[in-house]
Design a protein around this nucleic acid. Structure first.
Length: 270
DNA sequence: ATGGTAGCGAAGCTA
């Protein structure tokens, strides 16, 4: 990794403790400067802070709860001015923000998955997901500073972001209620979808494959749930995006793969 | 159409 770039990684690890050997593998092979994790599934006081410091990430922001959710930002670079919003009035460890040395705010989100039934009347989890996205839209409309937004947004917005648009129209993660909200969120701040900027449609692109498939690679029934966006002014900083599909084939994998972005240091992050 | 797997934590919930 050339020093004129900064490499960020967003990864839903589905338990940071269960995934520790793969965290080490990711760091050894891909050397991200900043790791944004989701679904760490551990209370903040039990988060493996020392292990991350030993890996080269002494600057840490951690939110967590027992067994569910949880987000963390682990960094080689100093972090300032941490912020942790509570969305929908719940203190459920789904968001963290850190100010990078350049002054840019980095936001790490874990949007609710939403349960199985795509009806907010019948399914409170789906109602929570829609309300969470609505709050994000209102937040983005008020944003007046450049940001980097990453995370598991649990929505695959475009037809090419799922293995079958038709089959998933009534499946939570790709319903019109969700995809319209995600695109409104994008428009609210004129966010640039860096992943699609590097890997444009109509190419299919996924970041998640169900654990329940007999052969995830052969059936390839994936969805693009994990995202890296920036404010328009930071779009020019984009150098490259890597969706680490191979990580789904690692031993004891997460069902999500890491998404890496290289940003020109001088263009944004200092 | 259904059920399939993984993690937490020690049964059932969540994804």
């Amino acid at each position: 990794m050339a020093t004129d770039h900064i490499r960020l990684c967003s990864w839903n690890v589905n338990s940071v403790r269960a995934r520790w050997p793969l965290v080490e593998k990711l760091v050894a092979e891909w050397r991200p400067d900043i790791l944004c994790l989701q679904e760490t599934k551990v209370a903040a006081e039990l988060f493996p802070r020392d292990a991350f410091a030993a890996l080269g990430y002494p600057h840490q922001l951690v939110r967590g709860m027992k067994g569910y959710n949880g987000v963390a930002i682990l960094s080689r670079l100093p972090l300032a001015a941490a912020a942790a919003h509570s969305w929908c009035g719940a203190d459920d460890a789904r968001h963290l923000a850190a100010r990078l040395p350049s002054g840019i705010m980095l936001h790490n989100f874990y949007v609710p998955a939403g349960g199985d039934i795509p009806d907010p009347e019948a399914n409170p989890r789906f109602a929570h997901k829609l309300a969470f996205l609505d709050e994000m839209i209102a937040w983005a409309e008020r944003l007046r500073e450049p940001v980097v937004l990453v995370g598991d947004l649990n929505v695959a917005p475009h037809p090419e972001d799922v293995w079958s648009h038709k089959a998933l129209l009534d499946v939570v993660s790709h319903t019109p209620q969700e995809t319209e909200r995600l695109l409104r969120l994008q428009e609210a701040h004129d966010f640039v979808d860096l992943v699609r900027a590097c890997h444009p449609r109509p190419a299919k692109l996924y970041t998640w494959w169900s654990y329940r498939a007999r052969d995830w690679a052969a059936s390839d029934r994936g969805r693009r749930l994990d995202h890296i966006w920036t404010s328009p002014a930071l779009g020019a900083a984009l150098a490259d995006v890597i969706v680490l599909r191979e990580a789904r084939g690692w031993a004891r994998p997460s069902d999500h793969v890491p998404v890496l972005v290289d940003l020109h240091r001088d263009a944004c992050l200092g």
